[in-house]
Amino acid sequence: MTNSDWANPYGVRKPYGSNGAGNGDGRDSGANGSATLSADHPLVPWKQPDHMHQWVDVDHSRDELDRFEEDWPHLDELLDSSSGHGRVVVVSGQPGMGKTSLIHRCIHEARRRISAAAPAAGNPLVLFAPTAGLDNDGRRISVDPDGRSFAPTRLINARIRREIAKRLLLHEFPEPRVQAIISEEDPFQAYSEMSDLLIQHNALLFVVIPHIRWNDAHLRAAFLRTCLSPAHPRIVLFVEVSHGAAETPRDVTAALAGSAAVTHLALRELDSEDIWRFSHSARAAGGGPHSLVEPDRSSLMAAHDEWKPSDVRELRKVFHSAANALRSAPHPWAIDADALRPHWESRRARRDALLREPILPRPGG
């Protein structure tokens, strides 16, 4: 077997380009198997349905997706300007736990429902604004121009609006109206004008706001309240919030408790079944090379107590690395605890890198 025949069963196909599932025009540029799959990448099933098979329910996100579907309003409620508010969906969990993937699965489901109901609602234009790009790097909107500290919340909100404005202009919304939204300093007023513009053009807007590594819970709560304030009709904000081991999902959204406009989706920690579930599901979904055999269930479940993987990203990278190491094995090998151990041990010292060093806050927030 040559390297060109290799298809790592734990690899992730990037959404675009030579390593991707297509270019957004329906052509599958990566289907010939020549692309090298990466160890990890934010999944984008809302845009590329082919990515749905790469999603593995090991972080209990199926339960949270069900919760989202149950809480999702009828389309006419989102479009009704008399209802008074749009929606804020807060997705919380530890770094690397799959929040970005869950958000995009929610958007995929929402777009499916909107498509089914669209004729009766006048076929609204659906817009999508990833304010930190598909890589979902919050630094681009949350770091001060000096590169060393948090930007003030006013500037963070302005940057988010500028990213939204780019999407509006791509769809030929009137430039003077869009520029007025950007220049408006009051976030509530800016989003109110944006909502009016969406109503006039029969459009519905999905906005993804990434985790921006708040190092102060009060500052984070204040920012979430600013997200709740502009929850106007036809605007749906998906806000990603990473929290540390010392916090609970309840701590994250305490400031928003009681709001009818908020849906909170919280990803739980991995348990002893998750290593096995990931190994089995990922391999079955992606197809495996002939040099690997069925993973050993008892060995993988026993590995949990020794390994204690912190998140889905770590699972992906360790399994991907172990499979690469076995690709040249002289005879079939199973992915078991012995095969994984060298790769999880080498990553233990680097786990803190997932949290990254917090950015120093500016005086006054």
Rank of each mutant, 00 (worst) to 15 (best):
T36I: 15
A165N: 06
A121F: 05
R105S: 11
D50I: 09
D66M: 05
G133H: 06
F68G: 05
I114S: 07
H108T: 00
L170A: 11
A132P: 03
H51F: 02
V90S: 01
P45C: 05
C106Y: 02
L78R: 06
P95L: 02
L134K: 12
V89A: 07
L37I: 04
V143N: 04
V89K: 10
K47A: 08
R154F: 15
H171Q: 05
E175H: 09
S92T: 15
G147M: 03
V178F: 08
E109V: 01
E69W: 03
L155V: 13
A117H: 06
G133I: 15
G138L: 13
V58H: 02
P174G: 01
G84W: 00
I114P: 10
N123H: 14
S61L: 03
E172F: 14
G138E: 06
H85I: 00
L168V: 05
W72G: 13
K47T: 12
S101K: 07
D80G: 02
A120T: 06
H104E: 12
R113P: 13
R111P: 01
P176Y: 11
D80P: 05
S101G: 15
R161S: 08
T153N: 15
E64F: 10
A116H: 11
T36A: 15
G98S: 05
S115H: 12
S38H: 07
K47G: 14
E109R: 15
P174V: 01
R177P: 04
E64N: 03
L168D: 09
T153S: 07
P119A: 04
I103L: 08
S101Q: 08
A165H: 07
A151V: 02
A39G: 15
S83Q: 08
L37S: 07
D76N: 06
P119M: 01
G122C: 06
I141D: 14
L37M: 10
D57I: 10
A158R: 10
H41W: 11
A121K: 08
N136H: 04
P130G: 12
A165E: 09
M97V: 01
P145K: 09
R62F: 14
P95N: 09
D50L: 11
M52W: 09
V143E: 08
G133F: 07
G96I: 03
F128N: 04
V126Q: 12
R105A: 07
L134Q: 12
L79C: 07
Q48F: 11
L155A: 11
H104D: 10
P124T: 01
S115G: 02
S38R: 10
I141Y: 01
A151D: 10
W72T: 12
A151L: 09
E163Q: 08
L125Q: 12
K47W: 00
R139A: 13
V44N: 13
D146L: 13
